[in-house]
Amino acid sequence: MKALATNLCNNILVRGKEENISITPMKLQKLMYFVCRDYVQATGESPIAEPFEVWKYGPVLPSVYGEFRTFGSKPITEFAKDAMGCARKVSESKNPILSQVIDIVWAKYKRYTGSALSAMTHERGSGWYSAYMSGREKITLEDMENDKTGK
């Protein structure tokens, strides 16, 4: 079963909180993209059901945008919550590949700003670039499988 994007965001936000590294909404979107891209490349499937959309500043998950847009360009200070007000995250012990991918992406990109990560997602050959150049509104699994940017 695929995870909710907002739950997977919480896995990343926990790492930021533990290491006192701020994460803005833009940075979170791009970290999510890199996690999902690398997971797709490792397994052939996405860890989440929601596709990334092609927005001006790179890949965006609408549910994540909606959840954190009130923070604007400021660091996120709260976890995503479900309809019952509970903050949930994805069980990494049940999916060790996902856990490893999150760790690798976090270690590699945690010090970058949202703008720097956005620039990476715009590079020629990125999944966003492929979808954008094809005039598509969504980034496909194939786009993500072929994305070698930032590696």
Rank of each mutant, 00 (worst) to 15 (best):
M1H: 01
M1N: 02
K2H: 07
A5K: 02
C9V: 02
N10D: 05
L13H: 03
V14D: 08
R15M: 11
G16A: 11
K17Y: 11
K17V: 10
I21T: 12
I21G: 02
I23N: 04
T24Q: 06
P25F: 05
L28Q: 07
Y33W: 01
F34A: 01
R37G: 06
D38Q: 14
Q41Y: 09
G44Y: 05
I48F: 02
E50L: 08
E50M: 14
E53C: 13
V54A: 13
W55P: 06
K56P: 02
Y57H: 15
G58F: 14
G58C: 05
G58D: 15
L61K: 08
L61E: 06
P62T: 15
S63C: 09
Y65P: 03
G66L: 08
E67Y: 03
E67G: 01
F68K: 04
R69T: 08
F71I: 03
F71P: 01
F71Y: 15
G72K: 07
P75W: 10
P75E: 13
I76P: 07
T77V: 14
E78G: 03
F79Q: 09
A80Y: 04
A80K: 06
K81N: 05
D82G: 11
M84P: 02
G85I: 13
K89V: 07
K89S: 11
V90R: 00
V90T: 12
S91C: 06
N95R: 01
P96I: 00
Q100W: 07
Q100P: 00
I102Q: 05
V105R: 04
A107N: 14
A107R: 07
Y109M: 03
Y112H: 04
Y112Q: 06
T113L: 00
G114C: 00
M120T: 11
E123A: 09
R124N: 10
R124K: 15
G125C: 08
G125A: 08
S126W: 12
S126Y: 09
G127N: 07
G127W: 10
W128C: 08
W128A: 02
W128V: 08
S130P: 02
A131E: 07
Y132P: 00
S134Q: 14
S134K: 08
E137W: 02
E137H: 10
K138C: 04
L141Q: 05
L141G: 02
E142W: 04
E142M: 05
D143S: 08
M144I: 12
E145L: 15
G150C: 13
K151Q: 15
